[in-house]
Computed example of a mutant assay.
Amino acid sequence: MPAADPDRLPVFVYGTLRPGGRNHRAHLAGRTTAVRPGTLPGAALHDGPGYPYLVACPGRSVHGELVTLDPARYAEVLAALDHLEDCRPDGSGEYVRRRLEVTGAGGEPEPAWVYLAGAAVEAALRERPALIASGDWLRR
């Protein structure tokens, strides 16, 4: 189900921000209203030094969760996630945040915020891939 406010999208989490992950506890636990399964088509999951990166890749998909942030804390939590992911307004950070279509458990695509590898990280991964074939960080 799409978010009512076009700027207050759920966040697609696929690594350490997933429930049970160390960054979920630190940044999302108690700050969400819903967590649902989701799949991002057209992306590949790569193993970084202790955390994953997403890179656009036709024919692949990544599994994770769609996390609905508590509306009262939405801006605060999204800013904290941007900081955690080194997501910079100019796009030069370790990750970039993009609005992409994620397929929910019911099979319907919906918009969500997704953190992708930033340009420098993506270039390095394309040169030396560290692909997680399952597309699932929990099954790596």
Rank of each mutant, 00 (worst) to 15 (best):
M1D: 10
P2K: 06
P2G: 05
A3Y: 04
A3W: 07
D5V: 01
P6W: 09
P6A: 07
R8I: 02
V11C: 03
V13H: 06
V13E: 08
V13T: 11
Y14R: 02
Y14E: 07
Y14I: 02
T16S: 11
L17M: 09
L17F: 08
R18D: 06
P19Y: 09
G20I: 08
G20N: 11
G21S: 12
R22P: 01
R22Y: 11
R22V: 10
H24E: 11
H24S: 06
H24T: 05
A26T: 11
L28A: 08
T32P: 01
A34L: 03
V35P: 01
R36F: 09
R36I: 06
G38E: 05
T39V: 14
L40N: 06
G42C: 06
G42W: 10
G42M: 06
A43F: 12
A44I: 00
H46P: 00
H46C: 00
H46K: 00
D47M: 02
D47Y: 00
P49E: 14
P49I: 02
P49D: 13
G50A: 06
Y51H: 13
Y51L: 07
P52E: 08
P58L: 05
S61W: 11
S61E: 15
S61T: 12
V62C: 09
V62I: 13
H63M: 09
H63E: 13
G64V: 06
E65D: 15
L66C: 05
V67C: 11
V67W: 12
L69C: 10
L69Q: 09
L69T: 04
D70V: 02
P71G: 08
R73V: 04
Y74M: 04
L78W: 09
L78M: 12
L78K: 04
A80H: 05
L84A: 13
D86E: 14
S92G: 15
G93A: 10
G93K: 09
E94F: 06
V96K: 09
V96E: 14
R97K: 14
R98H: 15
R99V: 15
E101H: 09
E101R: 08
E101W: 08
V102L: 10
A105C: 03
G106Y: 09
G106I: 02
E108K: 01
P109D: 07
P109V: 02
E110M: 01
E110Q: 08
W113G: 00
W113S: 01
V114L: 01
V114I: 02
Y115E: 04
L116A: 00
L116P: 00
A119R: 14
A119K: 12
A123D: 15
R126K: 12
E127S: 10
R128S: 13
P129T: 14
P129R: 13
A130N: 12
L131N: 03
I132V: 15
A133R: 15
G135R: 01
R139Q: 15
R139K: 15
